[in-house]
């Protein structure tokens, strides 16, 4: 359903952020992108979404979604696709909420922009989605302004929104790094349930290798804009690739690694 071939992207000043990046995803598949800071993971996600920041240019390659090129869609076409068929969760999705409007009014507006639901139905759906994210008392969350929520509560509002329309493709860029481990487990379970129920394809960007290994059937390791290694979990755990080994060694384990 998603097919990327030889994609190259650069930023103003000639910074090459992605080189010869290829990726293929089928419905219901979970693929993880891992790699150090600045390796181009977010650039890949933004390119797929047609949301490169100013100065970012696609130098070459193709991105096809269900047979359609995503690189030359009009704004109107994106308006129909984004947020509904292709959704995204950013690490700071919560921070993208408008600070001077309540969470509820933004969530309702989002739902009504993509559906024919009434105000009341939209409010109910929003509450139900928040409940699934393990947020107690969704009405109180909906009545709040973003500053009245904790970081993890805001993030879960962002995740709930992205999952509302059961997208066909979900791009999740560090969705759980602001969440504690039990909440993270709950979100991981919700993502997998969405995948099972709707065969949503999930592209997961994460620095948590353990979560990647648990969720993804295919893991892609990136460094300096290039894919350096890829394969399933077993492949990675046994990989001879030096950078993959270095990443695996940096994963802290309960037991301690520094002499403090």
């Amino acid at each position: 359903m998603l097919d990327i071939q030889h994609l190259s992207v650069s930023y103003a000043g000639g910074v090459s952020a992605l080189s010869d990046f290829s990726l293929h995803m089928e419905r219901g598949e979970v693929v993880a992108l891992v790699g150090e800071s600045g390796s181009g993971k977010t650039t890949a996600v933004r390119t797929i979404l047609g949301l490169l920041p100013p100065g970012g240019t696609v130098e070459g390659g193709t991105v096809n979604f269900e047979g359609r090129s995503l690189l030359d869609l009009s704004r109107r076409e994106w308006g129909r696709l984004r947020g509904k068929e292709i959704s995204v969760i950013f690490q700071d999705s919560g921070a993208m909420l408008n600070p001077i409007r309540t969470v509820g009014s933004q969530f309702r507006e989002y739902i009504r922009a993509h559906s024919a639901l009434s105000r009341r139905e939209a409010a109910e759906l929003a509450g139900e989605m928040l409940g699934r994210m393990g947020l107690p008392n969704p009405e109180s969350i909906l009545a709040s302004y973003p500053f009245q929520l904790s970081g993890g509560q805001r993030q879960r509002v962002g995740i709930a929104m992205a999952m509302t329309f059961r997208p066909r493709l979900l791009l999740a860029d560090e969705p759980t790094s602001a969440l504690d481990v039990t909440t993270q487990a709950q979100i991981v379970r919700q993502l997998l349930e969405l995948r099972d129920a709707c065969r949503t394809a999930v592209l997961l960007v994460t620095h948590n290798l353990a979560v990647a290994a648990y969720m993804a059937g295919h893991i892609v390791v990136m460094r300096s804009g290039r894919i350096t290694d890829q394969g399933d979990r077993e492949h990675l755990l046994r990989s001879e690739e030096p950078y993959t080994q270095q990443l695996l060694r940096s994963v802290p384990d309960l037991g301690g690694m520094w002499d403090v």
Binding site: T182, Q184, A185, V211, A213, Y214, V251, L254
Partner: peptide, 12 residues
């Protein structure tokens, strides 16, 4: 909390 931690060896 400890039980909810994913490890590299958590079976998928």
């Amino acid at each position: 909390l400890l039980e909810a931690v994913f490890s590299l060896h958590t079976p998928p």
